[in-house]
């Protein structure tokens, strides 16, 4: 290993973390006071009724294996929720794209560690929760990356060969390095994405999309779909509970029958609801555009400073640790 690179990398990590901690400390006092004054933060949330379901889901079922909406739940309770949403979206997109573009092990590790730190320390997301969210794509990472690293052939071709009766599985140091690089790059990218999704509720992401002039109809559909998801999920849960209590999932054949019955009934019930919702919208003067009252979240100096210096540090790590990229 190149020790110089390692040292540069470690210094950059420590600098980034210090930055996060110091900038946070300055603001912490102020924020505590503000929070004490206005603890009814649910008011600023235009889709309070529906997100309420999300909260319930998150609270009831914490682990990602069963809780479908734990990410949504943590986006609402994140301590970084007061940050300017456009800043969060663009910052995490920029970090994400740079992480993929740089394609360097050190940058990926840097992003993975510091983004995790930012989310856990500033966002106050419990570490084990963050970690279990990180493991969602783990199966894809393992299967996909090992598949890239190994090869099959009749003759031993690589540096490492494994003889399995008819053929060899082989790999080489180079492809193992490539695999490690890819795994870290993907995990780094995922943690940059989590900075956005674990601190910004979908409603705010959609409003950022509206501001950058994504077609109106598309944004409209998105905000409606987001709300309907929770309604349908709730209906489905009730149907499933009643089917289950009548032994509807006792064996495979019955389960297939109950599942498809539930699904087709769900669509019927949902379509009926769609009609009712449209009538409700029209009666309130809907003319093709849903506009929500949003609380202004100012972009303050702390965020700009953090964003700029983080990107600079990232570039610094990249140029300082320039090992020949493993393509």
């Amino acid at each position: 290993m190149q020790y110089q690179n390692l040292i540069v990398f470690l210094i950059a990590c420590i600098l980034a973390m210090l930055l996060v901690v110091l900038l946070g400390a300055k603001k912490l006092h102020e924020r505590r006071e503000r929070l004490a004054h206005s603890h009814d933060h649910s008011h600023e949330d235009p889709c309070h009724g529906h997100s309420g379901h999300g909260h319930g889901f998150g609270k009831l079922k914490h682990d990602h294996s069963s809780g479908v909406f734990s990410i949504d739940y943590y986006a609402y309770i994140s301590a970084m929720r007061g940050w300017n949403p456009a800043f969060k979206v663009f910052f995490s997109l920029l970090v994400l794209i740079l992480c993929i573009l740089f394609n360097s092990i050190y940058v990926s590790l840097f992003v993975l560690i510091t983004m995790g730190f930012l989310i856990v320390y500033r966002g106050k997301i419990p570490f084990h929760q963050y970690f279990s969210t990180l493991t969602i794509p783990i199966v894809f990472v393992i299967v996909g990356s090992i598949t890239i690293a190994i090869g099959f052939s009749r003759e031993p071709m690589g540096e490492y060969n494994l003889h399995l009766f008819f053929f060899y599985i082989y790999t080489s140091k180079e492809s193992l390095m490539k695999m490690a690089n890819l795994m870290l790059k993907a995990m780094g990218a995922v943690s940059a994405l989590y900075l956005m999704t674990l601190s910004t509720p979908s409603g705010e992401i959609i409003s950022v999309m509206r501001k950058v002039h994504v077609p109106k109809l598309f944004v409209e559909l998105m905000s409606m779909i987001y709300r309907y998801i929770f309604v349908i999920m709730e209906t489905q849960r009730k149907m499933k509970d009643s089917a289950e209590s009548r032994l509807g999932y006792v064996d495979f054949k019955t389960a297939v029958k109950s599942f498809s019955g539930t699904a087709s009934n769900l669509l019927v019930v949902s379509l009926k609801k769609a009609n009712a919702y449209y009538d409700a919208l029209i009666s309130r003067g809907y003319n093709g555009e849903l506009l929500f009252l949003e609380r202004k979240k100012a972009l303050d100096a702390e965020q700009i400073l953090l964003g700029c210096s983080y990107i600079l540090l990232m570039c610094g790590v990249f140029f300082a640790c320039r090992i020949p990229p493993v393509v």
């Binding site: 559909l221 409606m224 779909i225 309907y228 349908i232 949902s270 379509l271 769609a274 009609n275 449209y278």
Partner: peptide
């Protein structure tokens, strides 16, 4: 009305 139907279909 079809916007509501489309949205509910997407959510479904």
């Amino acid at each position: 009305k079809s916007i509501s139907i489309l949205a509910i279909s997407g959510a479904f």
